[in-house]
Every structure is written in structure tokens, then in C-alpha cells.
């Protein structure tokens, strides 16, 4: 909260505000894994999927901006050339078959050009080819729980840190008590479901966004190429605290991951032994968010 006020105050100072904006925008190319103030583009890609999405979107955006400028130019010509003063006598043209064919065919061609990379991207991002490990994700009102079935099956919950407990350096509404930890450069299969309503597990920098649907198990994958901490938020309206169940993933080297697994097995072992307590433990945390 404090933090946010400060940001706002800073922005309120006129020119400095624009410079900050521009700087932030330019800086977004650096190794950032979270949204930046005045960001206008994607968060930098941290997986091959997001790299391809960014690349494909650059193609789409270029053509689309071109189309908008083309239409705008035609409209400006119409405004200046075909207003009642400049052109008192309207023409009587109502047909031009070649023109009509052209403006039907060119969009089709553009769409075909779009569809090839679109299909490639879609089939590439669908499923892991050779997953090296699996992470199970379960959505709850209003927190996530994670399981590591390939590492002894320990599991833990991940709750948002409420505003009043935010420490300096932590991100309001994004940081959680227990981050998911994943090894870098590892193909990880993600399996997701929900215990109550539909949630959506999303990390913009990974190009991952998938519903957790009760009664179904959905699958996707990530292969994170840069270590760092990555943030996302629940992306399907799931009730009162929908805005307060962020996703935070810490990506570390494979060695560090092994050490973390050893520690996590001990730390979260008791949770698995007494699953009833999970609910009890979470209730007060949930209450605090309010």
C-alpha cells in the first residue's frame, strides 16, 4: 500500500512521469519477470512458447497497425477531398467488381499468411514432448496448492501475502508465502485441476494460461530458460477473492532445485501426514486477506 502510494506520487509529477514511463518501457527488455509501470508490451519471454507467441504477435501487430493506418489514411483523404465544399457534385459510382474482389481476396491472403505461424505455434505449445518432471497444480478458493509427484509427492499451499504483511521489496498482490520452485532448462509437465470453482493458472512470461476445471485434469508444459522469479495472477473469475490468489514461481539452477527438494520434503512432510490441517491452517490466512 505504502509502496503504491509512493509510485502514484512519483507519477503525479508531470514530466518526470513521462520520462519514467519511457524508461520503464525501454527497461522492460531487461531480465524482468513481473509487470513494470507504464509497460506497453509483453513481459519478456522466459520460455520457448512465450518467445514464439511474442514473435507471432509482432507479425500480427505489424500487419494490423498497417491496416489501421491504411484505413485512417483513406478516411483523411475522404475528409479533405470529398467534403461538401471541395466536391459539391457526388459521383454516382456504386459498383466496381474488380475492387470488390480485391478487398475480399487480400484479407483472405493476409489471413492465410497469419494462419501458418498460428498453427505452428498452437501445435508447438500444446503438450510436452519429453517431460522430465511433473508439477500438479490444484486451484482452491482462494489459493493454489502444488504437488511434486516425481520428488516424493510432497505438497504445499501457496497463499498471497496480505497487504499489511508485505515487507520492503515484496510485490503487493503478487508475492506469496510459498513459491513454486522449478529447475531451469527442464521440460516440466503441468497438470491442473480445481477443488471447487474454475480458476486459471497463468504466468505471462511463460506463455501459460490454463483453466483449472473441477472434474477435469488439464495439461500444459513449461521449459523456463532463465532463472528468476515469475509472477502471474488467477485468470478466471472465481469469486470474492479472485484478485488475491497470485502465482509466483521461482526458477533456480538444477542443483539448487535438488537442495530445495530435500529441504521441502522435510518442511512439507507434516502437511501431507495431516491433510485436514491444511484447511485449518489456511482459514486464518484467508481471513486476513480481507
Amino acid at each position: 500500500m505504502q509502496n503504491s502510494r509512493r509510485i502514484i506520487l512519483r507519477y503525479k509529477s508531470g514530466v518526470a512521469f513521462l520520462i519514467t514511463a519511457f524508461a520503464a518501457f525501454m527497461a522492460s527488455g531487461a531480465n524482468a519477470a513481473e509487470p513494470k509501470p507504464w509497460q506497453m508490451n509483453f513481459q519478456p519471454a522466459a520460455t520457448p512458447v512465450m518467445e514464439k507467441i511474442t514473435e507471432f504477435h509482432n507479425l500480427l501487430l505489424t500487419v494490423e497497425v498497417g491496416i489501421v493506418i491504411f484505413v485512417l489514411a483513406l478516411m483523411l483523404i475522404i475528409i479533405f477531398k470529398f467534403n461538401a465544399k471541395s466536391n459539391p457534385e457526388p459521383s454516382k459510382t456504386t459498383h466496381n467488381t474488380p475492387l470488390e474482389v480485391i478487398w475480399t481476396v487480400i484479407p483472405i491472403v493476409i489471413l492465410i499468411i497469419f494462419s501458418v505461424p498460428s498453427m505452428k505455434l498452437l501445435f508447438f505449445m500444446d503438450k510436452a514432448q519429453n517431460p522430465e518432471m511433473t508439477l500438479k497444480i490444484v486451484g482452491h478458493q482462494w489459493y493454489w496448492s502444488y504437488q511434486y509427484p516425481d520428488h516424493g509427492g510432497f505438497e504445499f499451499d501457496s497463499n498471497m501475502i496480505p497487504d499489511e504483511e508485505i515487507k520492503p521489496g515484496q510485490r503487493r498482490l503478487l508475492d506469496v508465502d510459498n513459491q513454486v520452485v522449478l529447475p531451469v532448462n527442464t521440460e516440466v509437465r503441468l497438470l491442473m485441476t480445481s477443488e471447487d470453482v474454475i480458476h486459471n493458472w497463468a504466468i505471462p512470461a511463460f506463455g501459460v494460461k490454463l483453466d483449472t476445471v473441477p472434474g477435469r485434469t488439464n495439461e500444459t508444459w513449461v521449459k523456463v530458460t532463465k532463472p528468476g522469479t515469475y509472477y502471474g495472477q488467477c485468470s478466471e473469475l472465481c469469486g470474492v477473492n479472485h484478485g488475491f490468489m497470485p502465482v509466483a514461481v521461482k526458477v533456480v539452477s538444477k542443483d539448487e532445485f535438488k537442495q530445495w527438494v530435500a529441504k521441502a520434503k522435510k518442511e512439507f512432510a507434516k502437511v501431507k501426514a495431516a491433510p485436514v490441517k491444511v484447511v485449518e491452517m489456511n482459514t486464518p490466512v484467508q481471513a486476513k486477506v480481507r
Partner: peptide, 18 residues
């Protein structure tokens, strides 16, 4: 594009400007 989800009553501070 920066990632702000719909239908949330409060947002991470980075989205404040827009």
C-alpha cells in the same frame, strides 16, 4: 499486454499508470 487480469478490484502497483 503487461498481464493485468480482468474482473479484479485491486491490481499490482505496476498497472497503476494505465
Amino acid at each position: 499486454m503487461a498481464g493485468m487480469p480482468r474482473r479484479i478490484p485491486d491490481f499490482p502497483d505496476a498497472y497503476a499508470g494505465w
